[in-house]
């Protein structure tokens, strides 16, 4: 069971909206919402899953994208944020410790990102204060390892290559 009753659609909608507004990722499944957003204990019942999925289907910010694998949950029916999450609020904000946020985790290790000059980079490592990348040409990693500070303007300008 969870702290929020999934049979109370109104309450469920409010709780899910609140959680999703603060969720920094762009892909989610109902299991993650159950455990992290609703304080779920135990495996959600099929009715719980259906109720959460139904709410997600009503949210215009999120669209269904089918199965996606999660490292914790395995393959799950998933939803993607329609409008990209504003990463800039994590990048060099004024709050305490915000300068220590591992914002590079907002970039996917193994992901491809396009720079404004059309070069494409593959993120190969993310450690403190450095995204480490190689340029990708003709599908191959070329040249030297490049370090990009994740809160730099250059990092902010990178756009994920999704196709």
């Amino acid at each position: 069971m969870s702290k929020i009753s999934t049979s109370n659609t109104g309450e469920l909608l409010l709780a899910m909206r609140k959680y999703l507004n603060e969720f920094p990722g762009d892909t989610i499944c109902v299991l993650q919402i159950w455990y992290e957003g609703l304080g779920g204990c135990g495996v959600p019942t099929p009715a719980d899953m259906e109720a959460m999925t139904a709410v997600l289907n009503t949210l215009e910010d999120w669209k269904p994208i089918g199965n996606v694998r999660y490292e914790k949950f395995g393959v799950q029916n998933s939803f993607k944020r329609v409008k990209a999450f504003d990463k800039s609020k994590f990048m060099g904000g004024g709050e305490e410790h915000s300068d220590k946020i591992m914002v590079q985790h907002l970039f996917k290790v193994g992901g491809l990102y396009r720079a404004p000059d059309d070069r494409v980079f593959k993120i190969v490592l993310s450690e403190v204060y450095n995204l480490r990348c190689f340029e990708v040409k003709d599908g191959n990693l070329v040249g030297k390892m490049i370090k990009i500070h994740p809160t730099s303007d250059f990092a902010k300008s990178l756009v994920e290559v999704t196709d």
């Binding site: 914790k72 994590f90 915000s98 591992m102 450690e127 403190v128």
Partner: peptide, 26 residues
């Protein structure tokens, strides 16, 4: 970071910590 409740600042190489969470389901 976890004890004091701020976003993870250790040089691990995986996600799930950026919001101050451990890598468990909850």
């Amino acid at each position: 970071w976890f004890a004091e409740g701020y976003p993870c600042d250790t040089p691990n190489h995986k996600p799930f910590q950026e919001e101050g969470k451990l890598g468990t389901f909850t």
